[in-house]
Write a protein that binds this DNA or RNA. Structure first.
Lengths: 113, 113
DNA sequence: CTTTTATGCATAAGAAATTTATGTATATTT
DNA sequence: AAATATACATAAATTTCTTATGCATAAAAG
């Protein structure tokens, strides 16, 4: 992911929220959507994405469905009920994070004393 | 750090910004200030803080000064010129992160389709 | 007065998330 | 014919942090 390592820990939140919007997505589609929405700011790497999807599936947050398209195999993911609940939590955590960081960082920047 | 692992990668930003405000702080003071400002939301552990401070010093972002207070030794850190520049970068990265995450997450939450 | 809590620094082992590097395979574009 | 895009996957290494210790003095509590 570009420039900032602040994105560390955000991947699950991003995946869950996208699936909450789109109902059903496959891995490659997620990488492209993120790149599109963030205008290239954030590039999700496959090495991070696929293991993450497998983990979410193993935890029961995602369900899988295989679909053959143009003689190629797509693995579609969708939120389970539990996954939807976890999405709520993750979004709340993100808002908490932003609020807390703003509290820590808001005092205006000082270049001199 | 409590609840969310979204804080991963944020420690450097927090340290630099606090030092930008306070000119001169020691490790233990940083943990207490963060706890105070965030009302306990964020507890910086010593196992994370001290190695991080050492790294920032090694990178030339912080200078060190030892001061004996009440027969106990404090290790005060302050920003170098380079450290101040990096603070600017880190704060910009945080704003970028927040803007990007909002773009990804803003579409209102959907509980049903 | 002695035990716990607070102050103050430090490191080491392990866990977790991600990067980087590959690997495979088909479709499309150049 | 070669390069790029689509589509998934894993493994090694790295980064960052948690958890667990360790040492030492000061202050508070019992």
């Amino acid at each position: 992911m570009k420039s900032a390592n602040l994105y560390k820990g955000s991947l699950t939140t991003i995946i869950l929220k996208l699936l909450n919007e789109h109902d059903k997505m496959y891995g490659y589609e997620i990488t492209q959507r993120v790149k599109e929405i963030t205008k290239g700011e954030l590039q999700i790497t496959e090495g991070a994405l696929y293991p993450s999807l497998h983990k979410l599936e193993a935890e029961g947050l995602l369900d899988v469905e295989f679909v053959r398209v143009n003689n190629r195999l797509r693995k579609y993911y969708k939120l389970t009920e539990l996954g939807t609940k976890e999405t709520v939590n993750k979004l709340a955590e993100l808002e908490d994070y932003i609020r807390t960081m703003r509290a820590l960082v808001n005092p205006k920047f000082r270049f001199e004393e």
